[in-house]
Simulated assay, not measured.
Amino acid sequence: MHIARTRTAVGVAISAIALGTLPAWAAHAEPTAAERGTARHAPHHPRPASDGVHQIPLQGAVNVRDLGGYRTYDGDRVRYGQVFRADALAKLTDADVGTLAKLGLKKVIDFRVPAEVRYDGTDKLPAGLTATSRAVNDNGLFTMLMTVIGSKDPVKQEEMLGNGKADAFMRDVYRTFVADGTNRAQFAATLRDIAHGGDAAPLLYHCTSGKDRTGWTSYLLLRAIGVPERAAVGDYLASNTYRAAYDAKVRESLKQSGMMQNPDLLIPLQEVRTGYLETALDEVKKEYGSLDGYLRKGLGLDTRTILALRERMVD
């Protein structure tokens, strides 16, 4: 343990699309390599050659990653095989479940709201694992999408999502990550599990798309343990890389099925954007003065917990 170093530290047509939305009938696609946005090493999967995201390739999910590999400000490295981030696990194949089993997971946390779980299904997990429900409010996104896409009305869809409205809606979602007390409690409980839950490691958390609720949690964790802003933002934006092909297939399917004449209206809901993250951070600054203030006052994490996060996550 590096004690000294720690102190530096509708119907079948739709499901949810942002914070997890995928038509249930759309087949998963392999991700492209195109970027769309500016413990100890686990023995069961290869270590990347350089710092950066580490995807766990699966057939039934496209955005599953190991948070290990990033360098901290003082040159240490985040451990592999400790914490994983993911999109929905309800469509995993038997082979996928076998891959997860090799990760040695002890705890899985599901940020989806009950409506998402009812529609998409519960997680498919290795024997002996049951997901812990820790729902984070989607600000009405799931219901809104069920209404707007299910209407098949291009005028209504344009009125609800066009002219920057989809972007603005996502910014409101991110504000709730900071402003909503229940949401803060869910994020805090997850970070405490990582810090103090010896029996909970390795741990995986997910929403449906693995980009917003999961992305915010990952950003907080990386920043709390001393990963520089640029790398933490890079991890956040990497969802656009891994989701690009799948999300494009969703839009094409909606167009071919006649559900939407202009499915590109969904792009702001499907993507992560620096503007969304900045909106949450602006709310952090307004309410708590700094990210450290949000961690300590907003999430209620004391110094011991923040130091324990560093100890668990950093070599």
Rank of each mutant, 00 (worst) to 15 (best):
L307R: 10
P228A: 04
T208R: 02
K152E: 11
D180E: 09
G275P: 06
G150H: 08
T190C: 13
R304I: 14
A188T: 00
A244F: 08
K249T: 11
G20E: 00
L221W: 01
G75K: 09
S257W: 11
K91W: 09
V108D: 07
R310I: 08
A101D: 06
D282G: 14
A26V: 15
D180T: 05
L89G: 03
S253I: 07
L266D: 04
Y294V: 04
A4Y: 05
Y276L: 06
D199A: 14
W25R: 15
R77K: 12
G140E: 05
A127Q: 09
Y276A: 05
I14P: 12
T122G: 10
R175E: 09
A195Q: 07
L19I: 10
G258K: 06
K102M: 12
K156Y: 15
R223S: 09
V83F: 01
A131H: 08
I14K: 12
R273T: 10
D51R: 13
E158V: 03
V108I: 12
T182N: 13
T32L: 11
A86W: 00
T32F: 04
V10T: 13
A115V: 12
A95K: 04
R175H: 07
T190I: 08
D292T: 14
Q256K: 14
L266K: 01
A95T: 08
S15Q: 10
L301F: 02
R118F: 05
T132V: 15
R77Q: 14
E252T: 14
L89T: 01
Y288E: 07
G293V: 02
D315K: 04
G60K: 05
M144Y: 09
S290E: 03
A200E: 12
H44A: 15
K286C: 08
A86P: 00
R5I: 11
N240V: 12
R171L: 08
A179M: 09
E35L: 13
T93N: 01
G98K: 01
G215N: 03
R85L: 05
V83S: 01
H45I: 11
L67P: 00
A224M: 05
V117C: 04
C207L: 00
W25D: 15
F111N: 02
T241Q: 13
H28E: 10
Y294Q: 03
G226L: 03
A185Y: 00
P48M: 06
G20I: 01
R77S: 10
D96C: 10
A88N: 09
S290Y: 00
K152L: 06
E252D: 13
G81V: 01
T208A: 14
K211I: 12
L89S: 04
A4H: 04
D76Y: 07
L161K: 06
K91Y: 12
V64R: 01
R310Y: 15
V78C: 02
V113I: 14
G162N: 06
L191E: 01
A95R: 04
A127I: 00
